[in-house]
Design a protein around this nucleic acid. Sequence first.
DNA 1: TTCGTTGCAAATATTTTGCAAGTTC
DNA 2: GAACTTGCAAAATATTTGCAACGAA
Lengths: 154, 154
Amino acid sequence: MAEYLTDLLEKNGYKTTIQRKTVYEVLCENKDKHLSTEDIYNIIQNVNPKIGIATIYRTLLLFEDIGLVYRHNFDDGFQRYEILSPHSSEVHQHHHLLCKQCGKIIEVKEDLMNSLEEIIEKQYNFEILNHEVKFTGICAQCRDKEKEDGRKET
Amino acid sequence: MAEYLTDLLEKNGYKTTIQRKTVYEVLCENKDKHLSTEDIYNIIQNVNPKIGIATIYRTLLLFEDIGLVYRHNFDDGFQRYEILSPHSSEVHQHHHLLCKQCGKIIEVKEDLMNSLEEIIEKQYNFEILNHEVKFTGICAQCRDKEKEDGRKET
DNA sequence: TTCGTTGCAAATATTTTGCAAGTTC
DNA sequence: GAACTTGCAAAATATTTGCAACGAA
C-alpha cells in the first residue's frame, strides 16, 4: 500500500517515517479534494495528535518536490494539495472554475483547450469573467546554465 | 490625465485622493510590469514618503475591485498588479511562463489556445513541465441567488 | 551509529485592521 | 459638516526555521 511512497522516498534519498505515511494516507483518502495544509493537519489530529503542523508543512513541501502531489493556489490564502497518481499523464492538467462570489471551486473534467470559454459557459453554466493560463517549466537561460554546470562537473 | 481615475472612482462612490492618484501614476508609468505592493510602496517613498504602506494595500484592493488593475498571483509570495487600459478586451487574457528554477516570468504576447504547448516550447524556447488554466467568473448558484435577491428588492 | 526527521516554540513575512486625525466633496 | 480616507502601530495569518531530542536504516 505504502510501498509506492517508500520507493519514491528512497529513490530521492529520503526516509520513510510514520508522519510521512500518515500524510500520504490522508491524501489518498481524499484523492479528489484539494486539502489545505491545515485541513490535513486537522484530519491527522484525530489519528495521531502528536504530529506537529510544522511536520505537515515540511512533508507537503517534500511531496511536491518529489512529484507526489500537485500544489494548487486558488488564491484563497491557502496552499492546497492533491495527490498525483503514478501513471497518469493527464494529471498535469488542472482546470478549475473559481467563483468570484462564493469562492467555490469547480473542476473541469474535460481538457478543453479550444473554443473553451463558450463550452464551459454552457456546460457548467458558469459565467466566465476572466481566465488565466499558467505554464510552469524551465526557461531557456536556466537550461543553458544547466548545460554549463554539467560541463564543469565532468 | 487622471480624469479617467476620478471618473472611475466617482462612478463607484469613492473619493479622489492624492494617495490614489499617486498609485495610479506609478502603475501607469509601469504599464507592462508586474509590480508588487511593496515595489509600488518603495517607488512612492521617493515621491511622497508620507504615504503609508497600509494605504497602498487598501488602494490596490480598491483598484482591483473597480477593475482598474489586474492582480497577478505568481506564487512568489507577493500580490502583483498590472494596470488595465479602459478599452482593451484583450487585457483579460494573461498568459505567462513561470520558470520553476529562477522564478522568471515571461509574458506570452499571442493568444495561444490551441496546440499551445508545442508552439510555446518552440517560440519561447521554454520547456513546459506543467500548465494550469484558471477561469474566474460567477457560478450558476450565485447567479440564481442574484436573481432571487433582485426579486426581493423589488 | 549516523544522519535525516520531528516537535515545539519562536521568528518571518505579508497583509489586514482599529482608531484618531485629516481630507474630500 | 458628513462621510470617507489616511497613517500609524498593533494584530492577524500562513508559513518557515533553530535546535535539541528522536528514530530510521
